[in-house]
């Protein structure tokens, strides 16, 4: 328990690493103190510039993140990284391995790396991710990077929090039909074809360029498609420049505030879903009656539609 929320708030603002780390854990665990802290944070803090980076496993997200951060650090910009990996549906545990590829920045005093598991057991985005963004903003970090494996809806929800979203892929990622499928390809502001020393990288760049040129409105931001070789740190300055360009584009078109209203809207929905789950759904799931209904439905004595209405008193 924390005796004094104002003290906690001030210690985070002063950049005390222990306190920042503890505050994030409180938010992840959903403690009462975390709620008190976040009430104050939401009323006082503008979020720092938020960059989302996503893509398939092994495409080079962490390596690229490390290189971009190194460039920002040369300008003395403080950066926080939230590295998200999936929670196991079977055990509830998670293996968080993004730090392995951020070795060069792990002791930099202007960099804070936090690994988080997706948690969020009952659908919806884990609301503590955006709360963590705000805690880092309070602590004075100027850029925050959220890194996540791009595989599903949950990840799209995460990158939609970001002001600029970078989608990283590799030359072998597939043909154009795979790229045209709905998903992360639709939310990227900057596309990166990493491992561009491999064959077919030019083809992949062209495929994505064709895909993004199909976007209806010609006045809006045209996502650049960049070829990089992250291991050799080639093409990274270009990514950094494009993040900056996109930031300016958002500001000049009043889109930054619009985007952030969308984020708050999403966060509200997350919190409402979480409350409803806690208050109404979770107790039902623990009730013996619930298991009996499942049995009866399997035996064709009942049907899920009637049972759901009965359980939720609708």
């Amino acid at each position: 328990m924390v005796d004094n929320i104002d003290q906690l708030y001030a210690d985070i603002q002063r950049g005390n690493e222990n306190t920042i780390a503890k505050a994030i854990s409180m938010v992840e665990d959903g403690t009462k103190d975390a709620v008190k802290l976040m009430k104050k944070v939401y009323r006082n803090i503008e979020p720092a510039y938020l960059v989302g980076i996503s893509g398939p496993p092994g495409s080079g997200k962490s390596t690229i993140t490390q290189s971009i951060v190194q460039l920002w650090r040369k300008e003395n910009i403080k950066v926080a990284i939230i590295a998200i990996d999936p929670t196991s549906h079977f055990s509830g545990g998670a293996l968080l391995g993004d730090r392995i590829r951020m070795d060069k920045i792990s002791t930099d005093q202007g960099v804070f790396i936090r690994s988080m598991a997706t948690r969020g057991s009952l659908g919806g985005l884990n609301s503590s991710i955006y709360d963590t963004v705000l805690i880092f903003s309070l602590a004075g970090f100027e850029y925050i990077i959220i890194e996540t494996v791009g595989v599903g809806q949950n990840e799209i929800d995460i990158v939609k929090l970001a002001d600029t979203t970078i989608f990283v892929t590799v030359p072998e990622a597939g043909d154009e039909i795979q790229a045209y499928k709905a998903g992360l390809m639709e939310v990227g502001d900057i596309f990166v074809v990493n491992k561009a020393d491999r064959p077919k990288s030019k083809q992949m760049v062209l495929t994505i360029e064709q895909l993004v040129s199909f976007r209806e409105d010609k006045n809006i931001w045209m996502p650049p498609v960049l070829a990089t070789n992250a291991l050799k740190e080639e093409g990274i300055t270009d990514i950094k420049k494009r993040i900056n360009d996109h930031h300016i584009y958002l500001q000049e078109n009043d889109l930054l505030q619009k985007n952030r209203r969308e984020v708050i809207r999403a966060q509200m929905i997350n919190l409402m879903e979480k409350k409803l789950n806690e208050k109404y759904i979770s107790p039902i799931l623990k009730d013996q009656k619930f298991f009996k209904h499942i049995e009866l439905i399997c035996k064709k004595k009942e049907d899920p539609y009637s049972v759901v209405n009965e359980l939720l008193l609708l």
Binding site: E17, N18, I20, A21, T87, S88, F90, S91, G92, G93, A94, L95, L96, G97, R99, I100, R101, D103, S106, T107, F112, I113, R114, S115, A117
Partner: peptide
């Protein structure tokens, strides 16, 4: 992980400084 814990693995050849800073963050 399979026992339900969240496990951070930091990779090979870590200095004591790196390990402790990771543990704090």
């Amino acid at each position: 992980k399979e026992a339900g814990m969240e496990v951070v693995y930091t990779g090979l050849r870590q200095t004591p400084e790196q390990i402790v800073r990771s543990a704090i963050q």
